[in-house]
């Protein structure tokens, strides 16, 4: 399932890039992220607790940074599994310099397996909601940083 979107972050591109390049800052904005442990260059073990309504699960898995082209493109790959199934996702962020602010074009591809496939109708919407929470949090951090 492919989803994509555009966001505006209210800070210049260099600052946005710096934030994206800091795993801990990133971790703080990833919805439901409970643990992020580096296990290699650009590779982390992660524990996420994601709950939408009654459908809650703890997903253990890996997060890998697949692309880093400062200050233009940033790619991640996440895979995790829980008792309800597994999720594999890849995402790419492209940053566009807009002076005092930065345009982010993002796209992602989400694959699920196991019982989670039964929720396929909901997955794009939920993924978009989580992405939007992520960007709102980043924007907050950027604005806090500027203040």
């Amino acid at each position: 399932m492919r989803i994509e979107g555009n966001e505006t972050l209210h800070a210049p591109r260099d600052r946005v890039w710096a934030l994206l390049d800091d795993p801990q800052a990133l971790a703080g904005c990833t919805p439901g992220l409970e643990e992020l442990r580096p296990v290699g260059p650009d590779e982390f073990e992660a524990v996420l607790s994601i709950g939408i309504a009654a459908v809650r699960g703890t997903y253990k898995g890996k997060l890998r940074i697949t692309e880093r082209t400062p200050p233009l493109r940033y790619g991640v790959q996440v895979e995790g599994s829980s008792a309800a199934g597994f999720v594999r996702a890849t995402g790419v962020l492209e940053l566009e310099d807009q002076g005092v602010q930065t345009g982010v074009r993002w796209s992602g591809d989400v694959q699920v397996g196991g019982a989670l496939t039964l929720g396929s109708r909901m997955i794009p919407g939920i993924a978009r909601m989580l992405a939007s929470q992520f960007f709102q949090c980043l924007d907050r951090k950027l604005q806090e940083g500027a203040a």
Binding site: A53, A54, V55, R56, G57, A84, A115, L116, L118, G119
Partner: peptide, 13 residues
């Protein structure tokens, strides 16, 4: 809605 989610173990309250 809840009972199917429970039976599929998608919901685990």
């Amino acid at each position: 809605s809840l009972l199917p989610l429970l039976n599929l173990r998608l919901a685990r309250p």
